[in-house]
């Protein structure tokens, strides 16, 4: 289709290139002061927390019940604020 060849460099070559991957500045879960705790009893699976989470740290199970990736969640609290049924509590760390 295209007439360009991506060919390995033949000298010492270090280019400023990266690939998308989790943890580009490490486990950002350590930034947290408060952590979101999901009350599965209350959750109505509306997915608003999943939609608004800036970090992609609200994850969905097969049944769309949500859970938190605590390795990376920065604890901003958006999920708790947007939850229409108050099913997410922000609990102090430690």
């Amino acid at each position: 289709m295209s007439n360009v060849n991506v060919e390995e460099p033949k000298s010492l070559f270090i280019a400023p290139v990266s690939k998308p991957a989790p943890g580009s500045v490490g486990k950002t879960g350590t930034w947290r002061h408060e952590k979101p705790v999901i009350n599965e009893e209350k959750c109505v699976k509306c997915l608003l927390c999943w939609l608004y989470c800036p970090e992609d740290t609200i994850l969905r199970r097969e049944d769309d019940m949500v859970y938190v990736d605590y390795d990376y969640c920065k604890g901003c609290g958006i999920c708790a604020k947007v939850c229409p049924v108050n099913a997410i509590d922000m609990v102090p760390e430690g």
Partner: peptide, 28 residues
Amino acid sequence: PRRQPYVITPESGVVMGNLAADEDYYMM
């Protein structure tokens, strides 16, 4: 035909130019 070390395409996933450690910058 043109040769180059990488291309930035949907398939390559290459990100060019984000932050690098000072040591990596030095080696570049």
